[in-house]
Amino acid sequence: MASTFYSLNSMDTNETPRLRGNNTLSRIWFFYLDGFRSMTLGRTLWAIILIKVVVFFVIVKLLFFPNFLNSKATDDEGKAEYVRHELVDDP
């Protein structure tokens, strides 16, 4: 990632303040931290994303969408046997 700070209106100037942080990891950290802090509409959008992810993965997935074959067999051989029964013996 470029280490040069570019002002929005200074593309042709020599203004070159650096990104916060001393190494790559801390620069990435501060890049995201500053980005999140300066959000306006983004706060609402992130709230929607987080609520959505919680609803999808915690409520919907865990309560309503278990892996069906895992309830029928514990290993691949057992799952193949179950699907064979479903498709061949008792379609």
């Binding site: 470029a2 700070f5 570019y6 002002s7 890049f31 995201y32 500053d34 980005g35 300066s38």
Partner: peptide, 8 residues
Amino acid sequence: FFGWKKVS
């Protein structure tokens, strides 16, 4: 979204 003032 975050990089306007931070990257080239």
